[in-house]
Design a protein around this nucleic acid. Structure first.
Length: 798
DNA sequence: CTGCGATGTTTC
DNA sequence: AAACATCGCAGC
């Protein structure tokens, strides 16, 4: 069969272009192309080159939609020797298009490492000698993207006048890793260089360089350890040092540092779960195991079993748990058959890991959400740890849930799917109840000496402490006691609703973002006020714009403030703080944890991020400063979140032979989410919460779809959301409930007003069709500038 | 009538 | 997304 025409999805994410376009396959490419490859094709009136994916091939005779084959344009370039998307991934994308309301191209791109996305540019040349003299002095060609907007405007004008030629280029991004090197090129100049005695840093570097022979080469980063960037730049500008970039390989070295380990003996419960999973031919399991019950060991052995069968495995963990500590357990067990996929990797490293998977060298993939798409063949098992984590749902397009993709892929491969958690999501637990999933329980800690910690709830209304807003006396005394016994303490601050800001002490003025309905966040590192939604920055005022007072005070983040208070109350306590501020730098997260593990601090104070997976035997006290801040959020899952968080963090205490204690401070001691976490009673919580969900028709009894309508003008947003609501009411069955439209909790961001609608339904055969008609409606003439987001099973309502 | 900016249309 | 077409309006 000789195919002449390729169906191609173009890299333009709009409704109108969300369909395959037909292109001729030039004779010389006929042997090269196949489905799943990337190509560059001329697109649109200007024939600019765009990347596309071949999703189908056909003979010319099958072409019915166009009258003349000659009207088709031809593929310009084939980018791959082998398809980058296999048939499974293409089929998955087809199905996801039906459930995830996002464009096909966005779904396809989500499946691939970023490096495989082309970058686009225009190259300018000129035959006009006058233009050449003014603009093309140093080079014959100019890359459009290298110009600033003013210059770009000039070039556009010259192009319109026909004095400049424009050529489109599209490029698959560079795959070469480089490293900056610094070499000493002119020692003579160094000797003659006069530096004033006040420039001590420069003098220090000069003195150092004088001891080095000419032609010495350092890596840039190595020099930066001792000298600041400014100083190095100074010597470069003097022509004494030269900066160069060299290619280096991204070879993985992380396997060498890990000592291999052997499988551990499973206890009776673990073994029962293991046997149930490996005996099964496919199907989904819910592994509900208390914190510390050894779920990971079960996962490891399930994976080992799959490998022994010649199959492969995907292991998903939440991004935040994807630490070297965690991945090393997999590397220790499976060696270089493991590929790691997480956001900390550079695009190049991700690409290398992806290559390792495509080539078949990796058999086990450990990664965060997006790792669910990896092109492993012959998958035997997929495991999702901490399956209740909301980070498995992507909160930007394409809004897929990794759990749903996992179910699809497990079915495709007839693989077993294991969902593990100490506190499963209600949706999952309910499916286990209905025996859609098979429920397996681990009720004991794997380490027989480790006991489930004792939890005390402190009613902050009766434990108020005049010395401190954050700490009750009971908690303070306990912390001091533990420090005295040289044991360690983990303190968690439920951060939601806290961030640093500035406020006028006299009139209470708090600066807010001009584009969004939210106050600006203080960033001490840049000394600016930033908006977390739209990125707007403003400088810190010295004088209150409202009352001209100079009494402007800085309010630190919750953790910062609590740290200050703690140091005030227990002088000499060694505290490590872990929050967004202290973990911004790459590797900072691990560094803090390893310092704490090494006993360099008595107290680890942090936000939610310390609730997961930490395993420090010397931690005997866990304190929760404010258990309830998430409880009052306008989200029907707030109780579930609170219960999960408290249970997770309580699990950090008493991991070894020393008994652990947990103290939870709260203003809502009678709330069931808090009370039931005291007894680690997940099943009790499940029953209670299910009754609540049933009463209010929330998931898992009902499915939900959220629609968010945004427009610059509030009345337009309101108008459109009412139109959508009437469309929905007319087309859905009378069993569907439509809530709203109501303004979003943060009603305005990016200068757009947001209104939301929530559809709750149990069975709506036409739902996909109806929602697509909503999408079409919003593309209408009358609805320009209207933005709409359709979120199937939303996880966040903020 | 010319020249532009804003707005709309189309992309195999 | 971005080029190109079209519309409408200011300036002569």
């Amino acid at each position: 069969m000789c195919y002449q025409i390729a169906k191609i999805i173009i890299d333009v994410p709009t409704m109108q272009t969300d369909k395959p376009f037909s292109y001729l396959i030039p004779e010389e490419l006929k042997q090269l192309v196949s489905v799943g490859m990337r190509v560059h094709v001329p697109f649109g009136r200007g024939n600019r080159l765009m990347q596309g994916f071949i999703v189908g091939l056909s003979a010319a005779s099958n072409l019915t939609e166009l009258s003349d084959v000659a009207e088709l344009k031809a593929i310009a370039e084939v980018l791959d020797f082998e398809p980058v998307l296999n048939s499974e991934q293409l089929a998955l994308a087809d199905d996801m298009r039906q459930t995830v309301f996002s464009y096909k191209i966005s779904i396809l791109k989500a499946m691939l490492p970023n490096l495989l996305n082309s970058s686009y540019d225009k190259v300018l040349t000129t035959a006009d000698s006058e233009v050449a003299k003014t603009y093309f002095v140093t080079k014959r060609e100019i890359h459009f993207s290298s110009l600033d907007t003013k210059e770009q405007a000039v070039m556009m004008k010259l192009h319109r006048e026909g004095r400049i030629n424009m050529r489109y280029v599209a490029q698959s991004k560079a795959r070469i890793k480089t490293e900056k090197r610094v070499s000493l090129v002119d020692k003579l100049a160094l000797m003659n260089l006069a530096i004033t005695s006040r420039a001590t840093k420069r003098l220090a570097m000069k003195a150092f360089l004088e001891t080095q022979p000419e032609e010495t080469i350092w890596t840039y980063s190595e020099l930066l350890v001792t000298f600041s960037r400014d100083v190095v730049t100074f010597f470069v500008s003097q022509g004494i040092l030269r900066l160069t970039e060299v290619e280096v390989s991204r070879s993985q070295s992380y396997f060498d540092q890990v000592t291999p380990d052997e499988k551990k003996q499973l206890n009776a419960e673990q073994n029962r779960a293991y046997e149930a999973i490996v005996q099964a031919k496919g199907g989904t399991f819910l592994l509900e195991g208390v914190t510390g019950s050894g779920k990971t060991e079960v996962y490891l052995q399930v994976i080992a079993h799959a490998l022994a069968q010649g199959k492969t495995a995907i292991m998903l963990v939440p991004e935040i748990s994807l630490t070297p500590l965690m991945t090393n357990r997999f590397i220790a067990r499976f060696g270089d058959r493991v590929a790691i996929m997480h956001s900390g990797l550079s695009d190049g490293e991700k690409y290398d890991e992806w290559r390792k998977i495509v080539s078949g060298n990796a058999k086990v993939v450990v990664g965060a959400r997006s790792a669910i798409f990896v092109p492993l063949k012959n998958i035997g098992t997929i495991i999702i740890d901490e399956e209740h984590e909301t980070s498995y749902k992507q909160d930007s397009n394409p809004r897929y849930h990794a759990r749903d993709v996992a179910v699809w892929r497990a079915t495709y491969h007839q693989a077993t799917l294991v969902l593990g958690s100490a506190t499963p999501s209600l949706e999952t637990r309910a499916r286990a109840q209905k025996e859609v999933y098979q429920l397996l329980r681990l009720t004991h800690r794997a380490n027989a000496q480790a006991k489930i910690p004792e939890v005390r709830i402190l009613d902050m209304r009766t434990h108020l402490n005049d010395q401190s807003a954050s700490f009750s006396k009971v908690l303070l005394d306990k912390i001091s006691e533990k420090i005295a016994r040289q044991e360690q303490v983990v303190l968690m601050l439920n951060r939601r609703g806290y961030s640093s800001f500035i406020m006028c002490r006299d009139c209470g003025y708090v600066p807010d973002c001009p584009n969004c309905d939210i106050s600006l966040t203080l960033h001490m590192d840049t000394k600016t006020l930033n908006c977390h939604y739209c990125g707007h920055t403003a400088s810190i005022p010295y004088v209150c714009p409202n009352c001209q007072s100079k009494q402007i005070r800085y309010y630190g983040s919750g953790t910062q403030k609590v740290e200050e208070e703690l140091l005030d109350l227990i002088p000499g306590a060694r505290v490590l703080r872990m929050d967004v501020d202290t973990t911004k730098k790459k590797g900072a997260h691990e560094q803090i944890l390893s310092r704490f593990g090494a006993g360099e601090a008595d107290v680890l104070l942090g936000t939610q991020m310390i609730a997961k997976g930490l395993d420090f035997p010397n931690v005997t006290l866990v304190g929760v400063i404010n258990a309830d801040t998430a409880l009052n959020l306008p989200d029907f899952r707030s109780s579930e979140r609170t219960f999960q968080l408290l249970t997770q963090v309580a699990g950090r205490a008493g991991r070894a032979e020393k008994a652990g204690e947990v103290l939870i401070q709260t203003f809502n001691p009678d709330h069931y989410a808090i009370k039931l976490s005291q007894t680690h009673d997940y099943e009790g919580f499940y029953q209670h919460e299910m009754a609540f969900r049933r009463q209010l028709n929330y998931p898992p009894y009902f499915y939900t779809v959220q629609l968010v309508v945004s427009h610059q003008l509030e009345e337009e947003a309101v108008k459109a959301s009412y139109e959508i609501m009437s469309l929905l009411t007319a087309q859905l069955t009378e069993h569907a409930r439509i809530l709203g439209p109501i303004p979003k909790p943060i009603a305005r961001t990016h200068n757009l007003y947001h209104y939301q609608l929530l559809i709750k339904y149990r069975f709506e055969p036409n739902l996909v069709q109806v929602l697509n008609s909503v999408l079409e409606m919003t593309q209408d003439h009358a609805h320009k500038k209207l933005r709409i987001i359709i979120d199937n099973e939303p996880q966040n309502f903020m």
